[in-house]
């Protein structure tokens, strides 16, 4: 049973580990192949998901257990760029659906502006 949505899902150790990853990845990416850029960001997302999964709300848990986990850890946009983009778009749509349900479902409308 996951905690309520307002619960802290990262402790200081978890956050510090992710911070270290992000800072050092920024440095290594200066010298790495450009195709590694999205892979490093997704690795960060995977690591964050791993940390928050057991402590997050049901909606967030479903996101990290589903679309994000299905995104291969070592995938790069090399030979199947379209497929790679499609899989990333699927994750992005899932993130957006969670955000709308969590923050904007009451006021969301669709129509001409």
């Amino acid at each position: 049973m996951r905690r309520m949505s307002a619960a802290w899902v990262l402790d200081e150790d978890d956050a510090l580990e992710l911070l270290a990853y992000l800072v050092t990845a920024a440095r290594t990416q200066v010298d790495e192949a450009a195709e590694y850029g999205p892979m490093r960001l997704l690795t960060a997302a995977h690591r964050l998901a791993e940390k928050i999964d057991s402590r997050s709300s049901d909606g967030t848990g479903a996101l990290v257990d589903g679309p994000l986990r299905r995104m291969p850890l070592l995938a790069v946009p090399r030979d199947d760029r379209d497929g790679y983009v499609a899989r990333l778009d699927e994750v992005c749509r899932s993130v957006a659906e969670l955000l709308v349900a969590r923050y904007a479902s009451a006021s969301a409308t669709t129509g001409p502006v």
């Binding site: 580990e17 270290a20 990853y21 290594t28 690795t43 850890l73």
Partner: peptide
């Protein structure tokens, strides 16, 4: 590992 993004 924390400072090695390539260390999966």
């Amino acid at each position: 590992r924390m400072v090695s993004p390539g260390m999966i």
